[in-house]
Amino acid sequence: MKNCSLVLLATALFLGGCANSLPIQKTVETNVERELKSYNLDIMTSEGSSVVNSPRLQVSVQGAKTFTVKSFEHQVAYDVFTPYQGLRELYEIPVGIATLPVAVTVNMVDFLLLGLLPNSFTDTLLDVSFAGLNPFLNIESESRFKKEVLSEEKKLLDEKEEFVKKPLAGGTLTIAAGTAKTTHTLDANGKAEIPLLPIGSALTEGAEHLLLEAESEGTKATLQLEIGRQLEARIKQAAAITGKYGSALSSAASSDTNAVPDIKAMATDIAALSRMGFDKESKGLEKMLLQTLKDNDQGELRKEIVNALL
């Protein structure tokens, strides 16, 4: 019975006990939080008005974001302690017994020297000796200490609005006219040059407006433009020319007949595209036609184009 009591007492000594608290630690940090308040897109054109008169539309898109910026001071107090482990008392009690006379002697010397010795040194010796002698307390150990949050406080230091405006680089811009629609990717400056000839088929079907649409991060912006009457007529005429050669080239590719090309008509149409302002399309058509002609016909086409432009 007596042996059982001793075992229980020893078990209580090794398992029971309390954590050895170290000085409370406090941290103070300054945090900045940016919250998006609004996001708008702005579509602008080189026309300077709601009426389009140029066959190539210069478009730029910018995104404007408004942020609420808050600065906080974040204070956190931590309870720092050494968790109790009963088995450590097997060597901590002897350490405490050995350290106590040293601690007492050092503190007596410090007293005679009028406190010239550092308090951190003298107090540490006493803490180690008394903690070692206490079977319910471990010696402080910073190598295995733990932290728990005691209190936390968040204080607002400053609040302001921040406005950021920049090009929609790499964004997508869609332009539609009736049932015709083209999609374009904006460059690093948020700009794109949009040819209006691809929507010529829609104009022949009665479309009177261009609708530009940009989208980014769930935000959309639209801009409606009217097509000038002269530009509308030029687009229809240019669309008819390019459409004619598109079908002619397709039939020529599938036919085995050696049809004689009408070089003068080709040159006239290429020059007409250039005069109407579709210079890029004119050069594209010229290059495409040259690839279908023989060497002597290619030279003749080039001469006729020069004559048609003079």
Results as ranks from 00 to 15, higher is better:
T122K: 02
D262E: 07
A214W: 02
A180I: 07
H209L: 09
P118D: 02
K283D: 11
H209N: 12
A267K: 00
G132Y: 00
I305H: 02
S129A: 14
A188L: 15
L225N: 02
D42K: 06
L87E: 04
K2W: 09
E140S: 13
E286F: 00
N296A: 08
S201D: 10
Y91Q: 08
K2E: 13
C18N: 01
M276F: 03
L90Y: 11
L133D: 15
A221I: 11
V306N: 13
A221F: 04
L156I: 12
S50E: 09
E92A: 07
A64E: 07
P118M: 03
V128S: 07
V102N: 14
L125K: 06
L173E: 00
T124M: 04
L100E: 03
F163R: 07
L13D: 04
R144I: 13
L290E: 09
L285S: 03
T27I: 15
E286R: 05
G86Y: 05
E142P: 10
L87C: 03
R34P: 08
I305W: 01
E89A: 10
H74Q: 08
A272K: 06
L116A: 13
L126Y: 06
G132V: 05
L293E: 11
A240Q: 12
F278P: 00
S251A: 14
V106R: 05
F136E: 12
K146M: 12
A240T: 12
Q85T: 14
L100K: 03
N31G: 07
A207N: 14
T27P: 07
P261A: 01
L126H: 05
T179N: 03
K155V: 15
A192M: 09
Q224R: 10
L231W: 09
E304Y: 11
K236E: 09
R234Y: 12
K160V: 09
